[in-house]
Design a protein around this nucleic acid. Structure first.
Lengths: 337, 337
DNA sequence: TTGAAAGCGCTAACAG
DNA sequence: CTGTTAGCGCTTTCAA
């Protein structure tokens, strides 16, 4: 492998000139620059990442902690990851994929393997928070812990998402609304998005005086079937449905159909899920988008901001956007006697 | 951050002694070792990854090219990735996540960011192959290109998987069998697993004298419905089904049900998918497992082998294993007049 | 606009 | 069993 010294020799300049030509940190005459570029080209030179990291104390690598255990929301997770990778590469960073275990944060940060961290799947009272707060490197969380003190966070505003979904149904006249939510494991693990979603849903139902039901639902066809059957048992007059569970969604719809309640004729549905999930159903579903990929990109943007100016910490909640796809029908509003 | 020099001073030894104590590359007296460990502990010392990479020409990082665009087989992809990360961390490696674009292989290898590469989603005649063959670093492909010349590969033996699935159905007396396969995009992109699967399926059907039908199927509920309807139109006497499409699977089953053919009473099903997909259906499905996670781990093991001895290239096809879950029923074999 | 040279923190000869 | 020391390839001050 060619080194910067080889390049310098070949271009007839000093190492530092090559270095500066590469970094653009000082002006280089057009002629010199041309000779350097030629030498680089001919030698196929690439700076050695380790040497650069040693000398400059930066690695141009971002660490990403992602929940890889398959199961719930694989789509959403993959889209977050894709967003982070895209955003990183756009800003000249690579991404080091870390496992969830607590040790790896300390390992990669204190051995200077990464310049910054993105942490996904944050719990209310996440065990990793103290470690993250005492880091030389900045960190951005995707999610929202109870106390984000000193940490930057970005997430969809799930409370708003729940409220927006309900309000859409209420506006169409629905007054008995059920929430098919995240699996019970997610809720009990206190990953806050499920709670925020529920809070928004409940708040909007109460504000509208609508009857409501909240059912955490396993991310499987079986879970969907069980929840639909329970809804029909507990709330037989249900006409509106908010589904925040991408795996269950299609099965919920077909189960309602099977139980004699067609969507959207007898039951209106608003999903909260990534767009691609909502559009690829047999008949597309009106949904509040989870813009996972752009949230991933935003996380990286926040990180590059923090690396320039560490005081720029902030919490960013992305506003939800509802897209009509025809799965909500107007109902006759029965006015009280 | 403490450096190795700080540790050495505090322990009253030389830098090299600390280095050797850490690497175990030469014997250290018990007493010295204890003092060093104490100093490391007290200072919270961690070797600087860049410095180490520069001096030793190894990074202990493996590059992983994974298809992050969501869609088909997200589960399978995540499990591959999880397997690679697990395997890597078990062998003391970290994982750098690369995008699919061709440039990144050259970038991370020639700047010495990684010691080795795992490449997923390999196509028959993959554009990245030439670049991979001329690398200082070893590479393992997950998948099987047409000409794996000089490259190590690992994958499920999809031809066998197809055959095993068919033979199970044939053994139960089925003679009209359909394959619900990967989406047409996958097939036309020539990712070889779809073709190998089809070849195994067709071969086994012909060997058994069974009628068969192959239907590439979109990874969506809509795709499933369309394929089921086509099967019933083209092969009304179908009784056996092989499904190699994890997204379509549940919808295929419920569509058959809806069309009056219950699984397994009227139609027997063998899926080819990860175990967790097969078991989490409303009623579990007999399946040929895609052991994605262990294939990911095997890929890393092959890599560590190659790093010790680069001549150890090989192609490994993991034998499929079928697990009974009750979705295959015996049929009366109608003997010819 | 350019060059010389001092590190960055570690590994691995070489020497004892 | 341990110490001395020469790099690894780059960035960045200092000096011109």
């Amino acid at each position: 492998m060619a080194t910067i010294e080889d390049v310098a020799r070949r271009a007839g300049v000093s190492q530092s000139t090559v270095s500066y030509a590469l970094s653009g940190k000082r002006p280089i005459s057009a002629d010199t620059r041309r000779r350097i570029e030629k030498a680089i080209e001919e030698l196929g030179y690439r700076p050695h990442a380790g040497a650069r990291a040693l000398a400059s104390a930066r690695t141009d690598v971002i660490g990403l902690m992602a929940p890889l255990r398959t199961g719930v929301d694989v789509n959403v997770i993959m889209q977050f990851v894709a967003g982070v990778v895209t955003g990183a590469s756009r800003s000249g960073y690579d991404v080091l994929l870390l496992t969830q275990d607590e040790g790896s944060v300390a390992r990669v940060t204190s051995s200077s393997m990464v310049d910054a961290l993105v942490v996904m799947d944050v719990e209310d009272d996440d065990a990793r928070l103290p470690a993250l707060q005492n880091l030389r490197q900045p960190a951005v969380l995707i999610g929202l812990p109870t106390d984000p003190h000193g940490l930057s966070c970005v997430d969809l505003d799930f409370a708003q998402a729940g409220a927006v979904a309900v309000r859409r149904l209420v506006a169409a006249g629905h007054r008995s609304i059920a929430l098919i939510g995240s699996p019970a494991e997610v809720v009990s693990r206190h990953t806050s998005y499920a709670e925020r979603m529920t809070r928004g849903f409940v708040g909007a139902c109460e504000a509208a005086g609508a009857a409501y039901l909240v059912l955490p639902t396993a991310a499987s066809a079986a879970g969907a079937v069980a929840s639909v059957d329970r809804i029909l048992a507990m709330m037989p007059d249900v006409t509106g449905l908010v589904v925040h569970n991408e795996v269950a969604l299609p099965h919920v719809i077909s189960r309602f159909q099977m139980r004699g309640r067609g969507v959207p004729d007898q039951v209106s549905v608003v999903a909260v899920c990534p767009e691609n999930v909502a559009v690829s159903l047999p008949s597309p579903v009106t949904s509040v988008d989870i813009p996972a990929e752009s949230i991933g990109q935003i996380a990286v943007e926040m990180l590059t901001g923090l690396m320039k100016d560490p005081s720029r910490g902030e919490v960013r909640l992305v506003s939800p956007r509802l897209t009509e796809r025809g799965s909500v029908h107007e109902v006759e509003v029965v006015t009280g006697a």
